[in-house]
Design a protein around this nucleic acid. Structure first.
Lengths: 208, 208
DNA sequence: ATTCTGCAGTAACATTTATCACATAAGCGT
DNA sequence: ACGCTTATGTGATAAATGTTACTGCAGAAT
């Protein structure tokens, strides 16, 4: 663990890495697991070492709007933000690809801020990145129409998975954009006509 | 200054207040002043002691989407987040009501995190509040239609100004919601019919 | 092979939002 | 009072998005 951690979190000091090794446990979660529910109290800060997590904002009617991805080398900003006052989670986190994660008890998260400069910097950096990412999401829904939002969605998927195949049904995409399947189908067809994608069953190939 | 600061930021330690008194300057800004532009480098962290600031997200075509308000006792989270690496601002800040603000050089913002527990807690709390607020904004645009968004907008205005009069033209409201004046006019009329508001020229009275 | 099931395509229609055009009204300066 | 400017009201229409209903297709199950 120590070794791979050093690769995933290259800026962590050796003291910090030792503290992690002493105090934190690594846990595995299968694809589909809900790691955190809206309204639930948060017990740990999570560092991802393997796999992929999707962070959603939920509404009262069960809508699940995709906010962003968490990947190896990253941490859950929400869990850090909620640390100080054992706040409730305002988001839902679902495992997208089988995940290994390091679970850090919340009191340590707070304690280490003072003890480890590299932890402090990592936390601030995490805040900053997530804030930026959320602002981009706001852009996409505040200023753009559904066709552009769909392209934005596919682009982020591409960035997150590092490949050009989207193995999701139109229905799943529609849910994460909070629109309907028919709209997604229509827009994808148009994108296909523009030569941006190739449509197959349960799979969309991104051509650029 | 010392005294009013103690009231506005009751959790600041005396040592922190002294540090602020020694190192920071208070500055006044008139309504309408742009305190921070998108893409600009940030030089200071800002603590508001008087007035009101509106934080916007801008798009390429000059759209100005209202994110949230900053009020006395609050600080600009963006300027804190950008502190560590002298990042560019991702938002635009405009003075809404004449503001007095304490300008804290960025390197102190960072330094105090280690030296003053109460500063650290304030910063984390600021992050958390802003993140929450932005998530609520995401909700409103991701899940709700324009009529609900308009009500949400008016409600926030009410909370921010602590009064029931909105002294804005329909055009201004439309810009901050990134929609058109006609839509706002029509929706306001409907709200008036439902008895939620009373419409006057350049002023909307909120009835509940 | 046949049936079943979930996914995708698409037409028709409803609703919401955006845009254009113009009328009316309110306040302001002269 | 008069005309000027800006804000608001409103109808007509267009465009985008959401909804309903149905079709066909592919793979899984039998």
């Amino acid at each position: 663990m120590q070794n791979s951690l050093k690769n995933l979190f290259p800026n962590f000091s050796n003291e910090l890495l030792s503290s992690i090794a002493e105090n934190a446990t690594e846990q595995d979660f299968e694809s589909g697991t809900i790691l955190m529910r809206t309204g639930q109290y948060i017990k740990n800060t999570i560092l991802i070492t393997k796999g992929k997590i999707k962070i959603y904002r939920e509404d009262e009617d069960g809508g699940e709007f995709l906010m962003y991805y968490l990947q190896p080398g990253q941490a859950c900003a929400i869990s850090m933000i909620c640390a100080t006052k054992s706040q409730k989670s305002q988001i839902m986190a679902k495992v997208d690809e089988d995940v290994s994660a390091i679970m850090i008890p919340l009191h340590l998260m707070d304690k280490w801020m003072m003890e480890h400069r590299s932890w402090y910097e990592f936390v601030i950096e995490t805040y900053r990145n997530r804030f930026e990412e959320v602002l981009e999401v706001v852009d996409s829904i505040a200023f753009r129409s559904m066709d552009e939002r769909l392209e934005f969605y596919l682009k982020r998927h591409q960035d997150a998975c590092g490949c050009n195949e989207v193995k999701l049904s139109h229905q799943e995409i529609a849910s994460e954009l909070n629109t309907s399947r028919e709209v997604v189908s229509r827009l994808l067809k148009k994108m296909e006509q523009r030569g941006l994608v190739k449509l197959n069953r349960n799979q969309i190939e991104l051509l650029r």
